[in-house]
């Protein structure tokens, strides 16, 4: 029986074969280019940007080809594969994406609260700025708080309105501890919600189930669901929750994302995020100021901290990683 369970676990291996990797020569060149110590700060690193752009290009190419295949092979009622089209519509591209969401929280400790989230993303440069305005139900006072944060290669910043001091906290992050926050989180708000949809789509877990009227518009309705691949392996991101995505029939943007609790009677909505606007524009060097909170809040005091990653050695000895 023990052998059985381990054999079953082994049979569920999602990557039974070794995948292809980039040539070593290219990685070595990137690493050597990476080596000179640079004082971390607001300065953008050109090499890193090239690398990120290359990676973003690969993602776009893979996304576009996947979408292309599915658009031709997987079309159904609407004439196109809606999930694939939504995936393609939200693919990272050069330039800056600006999006505004309104998030309503229905369950949990923040039930009754709303969050207006405005995001700027420069995926190629790894830059992301988020401005969150939260309202109630904190203490039933209907108070409003504003929190801004920026993640950039080797830099993370935050600023909050309502605090006693007008302070921008800037954390310099070493390369080894690079924070991959842009399009990285798994929550159900804002662009991150789009990120969740994209992850689910890549896993094959988003299906078209029909249409739904929403604020006077008829939108395509996608749902996440457990999915088994050709080998019978089951894929499911969550067993207790389901993501419902309403897609605009013209732009194929996911305009509403809703998380429902399928473990509770009536499958109540936990949180709903509505896309208010979504636009792309070409980014320039001057746009870097958009991702610098000290520039955005000129009267703020800047507190700078440096974060050094720590690794344990094989023998359990704690090492402080130092750059050359």
């Amino acid at each position: 029986m023990t052998v059985d369970s381990m054999a079953r676990l082994a049979a569920a291996n999602p990557v039974p074969d070794t995948p292809a990797v980039e040539p070593a020569e290219r990685l070595r060149r990137l690493i050597e280019d990476d080596m000179p110590p640079i004082d971390l700060g607001d300065r953008r690193d050109g090499r890193s940007r090239i690398r990120r752009r290359a990676l973003a290009g690969v993602v776009v190419a893979v996304g576009a080809s996947a979408a292309g295949v599915l658009l031709t092979a997987g079309s159904s009622g609407p004439g196109v594969n809606v999930a694939a089209a939504a995936y393609a519509a939200t693919a990272p591209q050069s330039g800056i994406v600006e999006a505004v969401f309104m998030v309503h929280i229905f369950r949990g400790s923040q039930a009754g609260g709303t969050l207006r989230q405005r995001e700027w993303n420069d995926a190629a440069a790894g830059l992301r700025r988020e401005m969150d305005t939260t309202t109630g139900p904190f203490g039933d006072t209907g108070e409003t708080h504003v929190l801004e944060s920026v993640s950039a290669p080797r830099r993370w910043e935050s600023w909050s309105a309502g605090s006693e001091a007008n302070v921008v906290t800037r954390v310099k992050v070493s390369r080894a501890a690079r924070m991959n926050m842009a399009f990285g989180g798994i929550s159900l708000t804002g662009v991150e919600g789009i990120s969740l949809f994209r992850q689910l789509y890549r896993l094959g877990g988003m299906v078209l189930v029909g249409r739904e009227h929403h604020e006077g518009r008829l939108l395509w309705k996608l749902e996440s669901r457990p999915f088994s691949d050709a080998n019978g392996r089951m894929l499911a991101v969550a067993t207790h929750t389901r993501l419902i995505v309403l897609v605009d029939p013209k732009t194929f943007l996911p305009v509403t994302e809703r998380q429902i609790d399928i473990a509770l009677p009536g499958h109540p909505t936990v949180v709903e995020s509505n896309l208010l606007s979504y636009g792309r524009y070409a980014g320039t060097e001057s746009e870097g100021r958009l991702f610098d909170l000290a520039t955005q809040h000129p009267g703020a005091r800047v507190l700078t901290r440096t974060m050094v990653p720590r690794f344990r050695s094989m023998h359990g000895k704690r090492l402080i990683h130092k750059r050359r």
Partner: peptide, 24 residues
């Protein structure tokens, strides 16, 4: 950390110097 950050904001509305992330 991002999720916790938002929760903490909701609960305490504390000053921004408290939100420094920790690594390692």
């Amino acid at each position: 950390r991002r999720g916790a950050l938002r929760d903490r904001l909701a609960e305490t509305a504390s000053d921004s110097t408290d939100v420094t992330p920790e690594v390692g």
